[in-house]
Amino acid sequence: MAILIDENSKVVVQGITGREGQFHALRNRDYGTKIVAGTRPGKGGEQVESIPIFNTVQEAIDETGANVALTFVPPAFAKDAVLEAAYADCQLIVCITEGIPAKDEAEMYNLIKNNTKSKLLGPNCPGLISPGKSNVGIMPHEITLPGNVGVVSRSGTLTYQAVHELTQLNIGQSTCIGIGGDPVPGMSFIDILKEYQEDEETNAIVMIGEIGGTAEEEAAEYIKNNITKPVVSYIAGVTAPPGKKMGHAGAIVSGNKGTAKAKMEALEEAGVLVVSNPTKIGKAVKEVI
């Protein structure tokens, strides 16, 4: 099973001729991901290492049956690229691009929600991987292991750290997902938690949050009422000084709202096992499964 992507997902890479787009398209294909197409306006008909390039996502879908879009398009053009994929009915759009203006993110999120059935992951996220099946993003698949723990995180590199801790203890993952740390992410913790709850292959969930916003508090409320599977959590930024921006525009602590402490308490109250350090995640999962 796994969630959102599996061995049957067919991926079209938007911006496949760019440095990152090409590198990760080929790397993911080597892993076994079905990379069936790429897009780059004006380069339709060409190829990247035998992957056909199309001018538009619609053409790519018509010709190859692609159902997932992986977006590496630069910030100034990312909104249009994501909307193009959504209006072409891509089931899932994974936007890796970092540095998209918040206004563009807010606009595209609401346009997709109001007018399409597409799911958007990101922007500014590492994507997702269902180990052994498909890698749609930039996560290093070497650190993953097929199994039954679902991982979801706001941070990229911290996701890798958590997955690494699990794999070191021989605990495999059903799917690992980074939702991104931008002000308006597409899929939220709650959207992903819901998918993991419904997935028969997932037995336990690891959720990694960070300071800023209230996404973790909302997730805690959701877990309390809807999630029956065990959840382990870590919140980054316990020692971050208040009021400082820590790289993600969202990570701004204001008052007690959004602090690591408030988030940890909310999660504990929802029955989540909260650990104080990312290296303790593996052991904690072992405890709950």
Partner: peptide
């Protein structure tokens, strides 16, 4: 990565130290 750097600050604090800075070299 901001998340990993933040958690590095946290882990250093767990071992009784404290960070002189937050420095993220990015992706």
């Amino acid at each position: 990565g901001a998340g990993l750097v933040m958690s590095t600050l946290d882990v250093v604090a767990e071992y009784g130290g404290s960070a002189a800075n937050f420095l993220d070299i990015g992706g």
